[in-house]
Design a protein around this nucleic acid. Structure first.
Length: 245
DNA sequence: CCATTAAATTCAA
DNA sequence: TTGAATTTAATGG
């Protein structure tokens, strides 16, 4: 079996200059930001798989970017049920809703695999935003996108059937994390699919079983393969066509 | 929702 | 690398 040596990855240079996350807002603005307080005073925080690095209710002091790894962001509901708000990968921002006015986090975040986070203080970020319009604009676009996604999610949870929500979730994960050897490149438990789709583990298992029978997906444990993305997409679109006027 | 069994993953020797 | 221990999936009541 071929293996790449990733043992010493964590000892590697974690500076923005040598970062490979081309989709990171900081990286894209590095030419203008490179001498800023923000970039020079950042700290990195290694985080093991399963480790929670944002607690619901904890005070907000800054904001995280993912240097490496994958993270889920969730909110705990009324009867202790977890609602996964989003999944995030390399280059993405975590805890951004707490930035500005909110004093305490209303969400929690857990690493889904070994992850390295970049941490920036509120103050240095504020400074960079005030001084740099291009950077602020990129941040604004990011917030706008997040809001849009969040509004769509309200619609999907309140109006779509369980089956459609599960399919929607599969397509979202697939779109975001891509495909590796025919399987979605992110192993999630059925419970995690359920927590994102706003349903229960059993329902997800039953929808998966139905989709397997229909030859639309394949599954080997946590690895899910999407055989026909178009048919799945159509099933969602057909139904949504009549919903929004 | 819960209980049971099958299957997959993790862990440590 | 292996298999025992633990966790997770699947199904049926």
């Amino acid at each position: 079996m071929l293996k790449k040596n990733t043992k010493f990855r964590s000892l590697k240079d974690t500076s923005c200059a040598s970062c490979e996350n081309i989709n990171c807002i900081l990286k894209r603005n590095l030419t203008i930001l490179k001498d800023s307080h923000l970039i020079q005073n950042k700290s990195t925080l290694p985080c093991k798989k399963g480790q929670q690095f944002i607690m619901e209710g904890a005070p907000v002091n800054g904001l995280f970017f993912i240097l490496k790894g994958t993270v889920k962001v969730f909110r705990t509901g009324i009867n202790g049920r977890e609602q996964i708000v989003r999944f995030a990968k390399e280059g993405e921002i975590i805890g951004h809703r707490g930035f500005g006015t909110e004093e305490y986090y209303s969400i929690g975040a857990i690493a889904l695999k070994d992850t390295v986070l970049c941490y920036f203080s509120k103050e240095s970020l504020q400074e960079a935003l005030l001084v740099n319009p291009k950077f602020s604009f990129d941040m604004m676009l990011f917030y706008a996108n997040e809001l849009n996604r969040s509004e769509n999610k309200v619609k999907s949870i309140s109006q779509m059937t369980v089956r459609e929500r599960v399919i929607d979730t599969l397509l979202y994960i697939h779109r975001k994390f891509g495909d590796l050897n025919g399987f979605i490149n992110l192993p999630l438990s059925r419970k995690e699919y359920a927590d994102y789709a706003g349903t229960t583990e059993e329902q997800v298992i039953r929808v998966f079983s139905a989709l397997k029978k229909e030859k639309l997906i394949t599954a080997q444990g946590k690895k899910i393969g999407i055989s026909d993305r178009q048919i799945l997409k159509n099933e969602i679109n057909d139904h949504n066509y009549f919903l929004d006027t």
